[in-house]
Design a protein around this nucleic acid. Structure first.
Lengths: 230, 230
DNA sequence: TTGGACTGTTACAGAACCGTCGCATAGGCT
DNA sequence: AGCCTATGCGACGGTTCTGTAACAGTCCAA
C-alpha cells in the first residue's frame, strides 16, 4: 500500500482520452495513479512502482493486456497484485479467457466509472487483509485491519463489527464527508435496505467506543451532509 | 471527466441554429462539446465520447429525445449520466413525463442560456460531489467541497448548509452576478417555493459568517440585479 | 436452551437552522 | 432635497436534523 493509506493503481490503457478520464476519477477517489500506454512500460512500472492494483486494457499495441496479465500472474512476486481487465468486446468468450489468464475481475466497455471504482475497491478490500503491516492511523487512533484491533492512545478499544467497518471507511479518507447513503453503501453493502437513521445510531456507538477511555470526539457531524473523521 | 477538468457535454438538437448558439455558449463556459442532430447518432456518441452530461432536445426526427433518454436510463453503464431535457412546450404534463422518463432536469424553451449553464453545472456537481483536490478559491477564501470546510485567511468558518451551498454557487463563478431567482433555483432547488427575500437574509448570514474573523465584505450587491462574489 | 453480544428501529428532547416579517437605512431618480 | 424602491438586519415562531436511550429481534457459542 502506498504511504498514507493511499492505494497505488497502475493504469494501462493506450487510448489517451479514456486513460485521462479514468486517471482523473481514480485520483478523485483517492488513488495514487501511475499511467502507462503500452504493455512494455506497464511491465517495467510494476516493478518500479509496486502498485496495489492494476487496471489493464485488453487491446493494446505490442504487448497486449492479456499478455501482460499472463506474465504478471506467473511471477510469484507480482502474482498477488489484483488485476482488473478492461475490454471493448462483450463476448462471453473473452470474459472467460480473461479470467482464465488470471485476471481477478473483468469490466466491459462501455463501463460505468462508478462500477469500475467499486470493483477496484472490492479487489483492494479482498487483498488488504493479507497485506501485513497495513495500519490505518489518524491522530491518536490506530487501526490494524489484520488483527482487527483498534487502539486509541495505545489502549485497545472494543468495537462491534459494524462500528469497525464504519471506522475503517472513515479512516480510509480522513476529512472527507460521507453522506449517510454513502456510508450505507460502503459499510452495510449496496443492496441492503436499512434506514439512514441507523447510520446515526452506529456513529453514536462508534463515538462512545472511541471516547470510552477519554479523549475528544474525533468524528465530525456535518449538518445536512453527513459525517467525517477529523 | 474531460482533460483538465473540462466537463464533456453531448448536445443533441436537430435545429442547426439553436444547436450552434448553444454549442458556442457551452464552449465559452468551458465545456467540451460534442454535437448530434438526431437520436441515433446521440446513442452512438454516448458510448464513443462518454460525456459527463447530456443536453437533449425533446422533439427530434426518428428517435425522439424522450426515447433516447429512456434508453440511456435503462442501461446501467449510462444510467449515471445526467440528462437535461429541452422542450418547446411548457405544459406541466410534459414536464412530468420528462422527469418520469428519467431526465434529471428539464428546461423549457425559450430558455435563458445562463440558466441552462447553471443547471448543467448543478447536475455535474450532483454526480461528482467529490472532485478531489479541487478546492475553490477566491482571494483569501478557500472552500473544500470534499471535506465540506471553508477557510478564510486560514481560519475555519462555521457555515450552515444553505450558506455553504450559496457560497459554493457564488465561488464557482466569481464576479458573475446571480439574480435572486437564479440563486433560489441553484441553491434551494427548483420547485421550492420561498420568497426571494429569503435570499437576502441568507446572503446577510453568509456575509456575517465570512466576516466573523474580520476582513472585508467579499459579496457584492448589484442593486436591481442580484449578488456576486467580488 | 440459555445467555450474551450485536443489530435495526423507534421515540423523544434539544439544538441548529429556516423562512418571514417589520422597520431602518441606503441608493437612485427627478 | 424629496420621493420611492431596494436592501440590510434583528427578532421570532416553526421546522428539520441530530444524539441518545430504550426495545425487540437475530445470531451464535456454550
Amino acid at each position: 500500500m502506498g504511504k498514507g493509506g493511499q492505494p497505488k493503481v497502475l493504469l494501462v490503457e493506450d487510448e489517451p482520452a479514456q486513460r485521462t478520464v479514468l486517471a482523473y476519477n481514480l485520483e478523485a477517489e483517492g488513488f495514487a495513479v501511475t499511467q502507462a500506454d503500452n504493455g512494455e512500460d506497464a511491465m517495467l512500472l510494476v516493478d518500479e512502482e509496486e502498485p496495489d492494483i492494476i487496471i489493464l486494457d485488453w487491446m493494446m499495441p505490442k504487448v497486449s493486456g492479456i499478455e501482460v496479465c499472463r506474465r504478471l500472474k506467473m511471477r510469484p512476486e507480482t502474482r498477488g497484485i489484483p488485476i482488473i481487465m478492461l475490454s471493448a468486446r462483450a463476448e462471453e468468450v473473452d470474459r472467460i479467457r480473461g479470467l482464465e489468464t488470471g485476471a481477478d475481475d473483468y469490466v466491459v466497455k462501455p463501463y460505468s466509472v462508478l462500477e469500475l471504482m467499486a470493483r477496484a475497491r472490492a479487489q483492494l478490500r479482498r487483498v488488504r487483509p493479507s497485506t501485513a503491516g497495513v495500519v490505518l492511523e489518524h491522530e491518536d487512533i490506530r487501526l490494524d485491519p489484520e488483527s482487527h484491533r483498534v487502539y486509541r492512545a495505545d489502549k485497545v478499544l472494543k468495537l462491534g463489527p459494524t462500528e469497525f467497518k464504519l471506522l475503517v471507511t472513515l479512516m480510509e479518507r480522513p476529512g472527507r464527508v460521507f453522506s449517510r447513503e454513502q456510508l450505507l453503501d460502503l459499510v452495510w453493502g449496496r443492496d441492503i435496505y436499512v434506514d439512514t437513521r441507523t447510520v446515526d445510531v452506529h456513529v453514536g456507538r462508534l463515538r462512545k467506543s472511541l471516547m470510552s477511555h477519554g479523549g475528544a470526539d474525533p468524528v465530525r457531524t456535518v449538518r445536512g451532509a453527513g459525517y467525517s473523521l477529523g
